[in-house]
């Protein structure tokens, strides 16, 4: 039988197993009579096999945590859930803002507003993988100096290493009535805490330690003079408590 020789493209497709059965059989028959081309096809297949043998071991490697986090964002939260949660937070904020319109710190509404603003800031910034903070912990002195200047009062960053949390860094945020600071901490498993600090409260002697919860998020918050603090984390109350107590003791000695 006198057939046209296959094109080079067909030979590649044959080597890569990308042909339908009929065409594959035709080319197989042709190659059986053309050893030079058959040798070429065999060599391409060896190349494919060598590449797979060299790089397949990567498939069995443990995937680094940072990539798992980037793929999951937060454990168990899909993007639609995240968007829904953001909208829900916005709704809560608007509702509370309406109910307590015209009131300011201190007082019940002020404290609730503090916990709520801290929670929203936590939900917004903790999923960030590449840009969780504006200034990293490697420049802690600069970070504290900068945020102290912007908030108009000397700030202190509590050390939570005894609770397993290292400082990631911090950022400046817009609050209801001026600049607000957020410090972020992270443990070895990537769980993040944020400490939200505002300095626009009216002079206030009460330093009571309070707790609020919204869904998965736990928030401990307290006022001290013109400063308001809120420590937030997506974890059970008891788990957050020891970090919150430590922060409280360090900030209110």
């Amino acid at each position: 039988m006198n057939r046209l020789p296959p094109t080079e493209d067909q030979l590649h497709a044959y080597a890569d197993g990308q042909l339908a059965a009929a065409e594959r059989q035709q080319i197989e028959a042709w190659l059986a009579e053309h050893p030079a081309e058959a040798g070429q096809v065999a060599e391409w297949r060896q190349q494919n096999a060598a590449l797979r043998a060299a790089f397949d071991p990567v498939l069995a490697e443990a995937v680094p945590d940072r990539l798992l986090r980037a793929a999951r964002r937060t454990p168990g939260w899909s993007l639609p859930m995240r968007v829904a949660a953001g909208i829900a937070w916005l709704g809560v904020g608007v509702a509370i803002g309406y109910l307590f319109r015209g009131t300011a710190l201190p007082g019940e509404s002020g404290r609730v507003a503090l916990a709520r603003s801290a929670a929203v800031a936590h939900v917004v910034y903790t999923p960030e993988v590449r840009h969780p903070v504006e200034v990293g912990a490697d420049q802690e002195a600069h970070l504290v100096q900068w945020l102290s200047k912007r908030l108009g009062t000397p700030l202190h960053v509590p050390d939570l290493s005894a609770q397993g949390y290292a400082l990631v860094g911090g950022r400046l945020l817009p609050g209801d009535a001026g600049p607000v600071a957020q410090f972020m901490y992270e443990d070895h498993a990537g769980h993040r805490l944020t400490l939200y600090v505002r300095s626009d409260a009216r002079e206030n002697r009460e330093t009571a330690f309070r707790f609020a919860r919204e869904g998965k998020l736990a928030v401990f918050y307290w006022l001290d003079g013109t400063l308001g603090y809120a420590l937030s984390g997506e974890m059970p109350r008891e788990q957050l408590l020891s970090a919150a107590e430590s922060a409280y003791r360090q900030l209110n000695p």
């Binding site: 790089f55 990567v58 490697e61 995937v63 798992l68 793929a71 999951r72």
Partner: peptide, 10 residues
């Protein structure tokens, strides 16, 4: 997304 990590890494 995470199901595709091993192949993306390879």
């Amino acid at each position: 997304l995470e199901n595709h990590l091993p192949r993306l890494r390879r």
